[in-house]
Amino acid sequence: MDAQSVTGCAAQGRSHWRQLLLVAACVLATSSCAPPEPVRIGFLGGLSGRVADLGIGGRNGAILAVEQRNQRGGINGRPIELIAEDDQQDPEVAKQAVARLIARPVEVIIGPMTSAMAIAVVPQINATTIPLIAPTVTTNALTGIDDQFFRVVAPTARHVFKSADLHYRRLGMRRVVLVCDLRNKAYTASWAGDFRRAFVALGGTVSDEIGFADDDALSVLATRALASRPDGVVIIANSVDTGLLVQQIRLRNRQVRLATAEWAATERLIELGGQAVEGLVVAQYVDRQNRNPAYLAFRKAYRERFAHEPGFAGLTAFDATNVALDALASRQKHQTLKQALLAHGEFVGAQSPIRFDANGDTERDTFLSRIHDGEFQSLP
């Protein structure tokens, strides 16, 4: 090989290496400029059907929390992606939705919004390391268990006595009938059982307890509720059926006192119930007259974003999502997210602080109100 050939080969070699270095530099530059992988969290709730107001309010609260956190830079520079699934208030649909979220995969699931759906999916969640943080699940059946289930409201056993005390001592009820929606029996059975024990202990009587499901006519149900001539009827059901049932009861009796549990306490209750729900006593997980600056800022932001009141569903889901995001941000390398949730201590809520016990349960007060002039007015 002559000198010219050797020189040409050397030049080609140098050119080849320069090309390789250029490609490597481009790859490094591209990878360094690529957006970081998002932190994915799931939401599970009933987003369709006649009683979707609870799930939609919860989803919106979660969206707001995620959007606000992303505006502040996400979690350690990573954006947060919310993946919402509709459980359609059907246990099998809920399980399929959870399976899809697990497969994405998500770090945590916010939801579900009803106790019946929680009972259905908690065993599935317990087979993973993904926590489930429920905004509005209060069934006693999930209390005091070391599992992946967390909640930002208290189980019914810790607050229903407050409703019983109000109805007996202040409103003078002595004989009541309980009407329960069996489609969410995990919730209604807990609430009714705790109310009955507290009301009877005060000296009152539960003269009847009536369950209903999809195919029960509310007109027939109203007649049954009044058959024992109670001085009060307490309805433990969703906002839609509560509003419609109150209308049927008022057509038959204008004097009987009426009350409902926290589940019904959305704006949909007033929209559907109209004039008939005036005077209805409503328990709820949000203090609508709260003047805490954090709550006022949340309410303002929610109304601007979604053009309706957040209610208790929006508030508790906003809190649950922020709890999850705070735990994700503070989690150490050696910790599971469950461990981070338990180790964090006190979380900041929009109205009140949130602290989990060793089993993921917490304390949250219930607030009593009466509907007056189409609005929820706090009872002093």
Results as ranks from 00 to 15, higher is better:
T242W: 06
N60M: 13
G58R: 00
S32P: 01
E209K: 05
A320H: 07
A317W: 09
P135D: 13
G203F: 12
L166P: 02
A186Q: 09
Q284G: 15
A24T: 13
F312Q: 14
S32M: 13
I109D: 11
A24P: 04
I119G: 07
D216Y: 06
E92M: 09
I249C: 02
L64Y: 09
F161P: 01
A164Q: 04
F347G: 01
Q351K: 03
G314M: 03
G211I: 07
A237C: 05
T136C: 06
R229T: 12
F212D: 01
R355Y: 07
D365G: 10
S369C: 11
F149K: 01
F195R: 05
S239D: 15
S239Q: 09
R229G: 10
I210L: 15
T188A: 12
M1V: 08
K162M: 10
K300D: 15
V200H: 08
A134M: 04
A358F: 11
R151T: 06
K338M: 04
E37L: 08
L218G: 10
S48R: 02
H334P: 00
I83Y: 11
I63P: 00
V152I: 13
A84Y: 04
V121Y: 12
S228M: 10
T336Q: 03
M117H: 08
S115H: 00
V277S: 11
N238D: 15
T7R: 15
D165I: 05
L337W: 05
A301V: 03
P79Q: 01
N184C: 02
V27H: 10
L337T: 06
P380F: 12
R299P: 04
A265G: 10
V66C: 07
L178V: 04
G73E: 03
V6Y: 04
W263M: 04
V23E: 07
C9F: 15
G45Y: 12
H16F: 15
V176I: 13
R268N: 14
P230D: 06
A237T: 07
D53E: 13
T316H: 10
G349L: 06
G279Y: 02
D214E: 13
G243Y: 12
W191G: 00
I130G: 05
E67V: 04
S219F: 11
F212E: 01
P293E: 08
N359A: 13
N184H: 09
F376D: 03
F43P: 00
P230C: 09
P310S: 12
